[in-house]
């Protein structure tokens, strides 16, 4: 992909500040998975004053519930799930240091404002390209909420994980930009 930016997870403020909506990125490093019910548990833990199952500082959270690994594989298919369902929880995790989210689909305006405030970036991976995306996941370990099955929190080591910046910390939104460019005026 042209002009691909290589980034390493976890992220810091300097790395986040360089990213702009529309940037194609290749992510290498460690990311964590969490989706619907895992988010509820993470925020419930915060509400109860309990520690999170992992240090959120600098982390990139991937919204995914992978399919089971076939024998000999580290993971099954593992594409992004729709992100807006995590909107209710996202700012709480940003307050704890989350620097990136990977999913697909539009975010609420409040979340986009929170991203500006807390310097957190939102990436999209290609929804449905799950067999291909799995190839960039090199190691997987369930670290919390095992009982949730596909929704358990996993620590993933990724290499050259392809994504695109949808919302940067400057308030830009690639979905709005792309739509405006190709919309046929009525």
């Amino acid at each position: 992909m042209a002009n691909e930016i290589k980034i390493t997870a976890p992220l810091d403020d300097a790395a986040v500040a360089k990213l702009k909506a529309g940037d194609q990125v290749s992510i290498t490093g460690v990311i964590y998975t969490a989706r619907d019910t895992a988010h509820k548990r993470l925020v419930d833990a915060l509400d109860a004053g309990q520690p999170l199952p992992f240090d959120m500082n600098g982390q990139v959270i991937y919204y995914v519930g992978p399919s089971p690994a076939k024998p000999g594989k580290v993971i099954g298919s593992a594409g992004p799930t729709t992100s807006y369902r995590m909107d209710a929880y996202a700012e709480r995790l940003m307050e704890k240091g989350m620097k990136g989210m990977i999913g697909k689909g539009m975010r609420d305006k409040k979340v986009i404002e929170a991203m500006k405030k807390h310097k957190c970036v939102y990436f999209a991976a290609i929804g449905g390209a799950a067999a291909l995306i799995a190839r960039s996941i090199k190691a997987v370990e369930i670290i919390a909420y095992d009982d949730l099955g596909p929704e358990a929190v996993r620590r993933m080591e990724v290499e050259d994980f392809k994504a695109v910046v949808i919302n940067d910390i400057y308030g830009n939104d690639l979905y709005d930009m792309g739509k405006a460019q190709y919309r046929v005026a009525k």
Binding site: I126, L174, G178, K179, R183, V184
Partner: peptide
Amino acid sequence: ALGMGPQGLGGT
């Protein structure tokens, strides 16, 4: 004609 395209990234 809305311009949303594949993955909503813009297109036809």
